[in-house]
């Protein structure tokens, strides 16, 4: 049984359907990357998985347990299992690093404060920011903010981490510090789904790459296969354009 199975999920932004029946599977400890042209719905897949974009039909299964996004309980169940990190970090500007990381586990999940704080210190250490505990987001670089955002997502102890173009807003020299954090998580066996334009990174960390176009999965497979010998015309065309440079 796959850890996560996405079955025929459709999602809408207002009246515009952006996902037309997406399906894929993710095994425990696997890193799966979504690639494809802009507007193909990659980010929407991640947003739909945590209930930020309404799922109009289809469902997902986590360890065989069905989540249909039809009720607030279902959305909550999804958010209990999956946490998302955004392109623009979206840290709470009025809270310091420690509070950004600990707020949700303490106030929303009601976990014991001491335990959450100990865990937060561990996570900040993991992302290399233990000395920035008391800093506010506007005192940090983009790369540091993004690593805090990763720590914040991990503090919820999700089973699956969703990373939505987490390096796209960063200066080139800050990209690596975030990628190193993701590599480290991958080594530790964290199940992750990432949307990224860093193709060489995707190739390096992913066990599976899913190529999407126009709200559908066009093809998927191991990175070497998708990048080097894509079967579809659309994927050949896309990789031909971006990998030539």
């Amino acid at each position: 049984m796959p850890h996560l199975a996405v079955n025929d999920v459709c999602a809408k932004y207002g009246s515009l359907e952006v996902l037309h029946g997406i399906g894929f599977e993710v095994d425990r400890g696997e890193v799966v990357s979504l690639v494809g042209p802009s507007g193909s719905g990659k980010s929407t897949v991640l947003r739909a998985l945590v209930g930020l974009t309404p799922v109009t039909s289809g469902h997902v299964e986590v360890d065989g347990k069905k989540i249909d996004y039809g009720s607030s309980q279902a959305v909550k169940a999804a958010r209990d299992r999956m946490a998302i990190v955004f392109q623009q970090y979206n840290l709470f500007q009025n809270m310091n690093v420690m509070r950004n990381v600990t707020l949700a586990p303490i106030k929303i999940k009601g976990r014991p404060k001491a335990q959450v704080e100990a865990k937060a210190i561990e996570l900040l250490d993991l992302v290399g920011l233990s000395e920035k505990r008391d800093a506010y987001p506007d005192q940090l670089s983009g790369g540091q903010q993004q690593r805090v955002a990763i720590a914040r997502a991990l503090a919820l102890e999700p089973e699956i981490l969703l990373l939505d173009e987490v390096t796209s807003a960063l200066d080139p020299e800050l990209v690596n510090e975030v990628l190193d954090t993701i590599r480290r998580l991958a080594r530790e066996g964290m199940t992750m789904i990432l949307v990224s334009h860093e193709m060489s990174f995707v190739r390096e960390v992913s066990s599976k790459v899913i190529f999407m176009d126009d709200g559908k999965v066009v093809e998927s497979g191991p990175p070497a296969e998708i990048f080097d010998t894509p079967k579809s015309e659309r994927a050949r065309d896309f990789f031909g354009k971006i990998l030539r440079h």
Partner: peptide, 22 residues
């Protein structure tokens, strides 16, 4: 910032909690 509200929502906050904490 709408993005902060969205982050709050993704972290499991209700609207009242988003108002209170964000």
């Amino acid at each position: 910032r709408k993005s902060e509200m969205e982050a709050g929502e993704a972290l499991g906050m209700s609207l009242v909690q988003q108002i209170r904490y964000i």
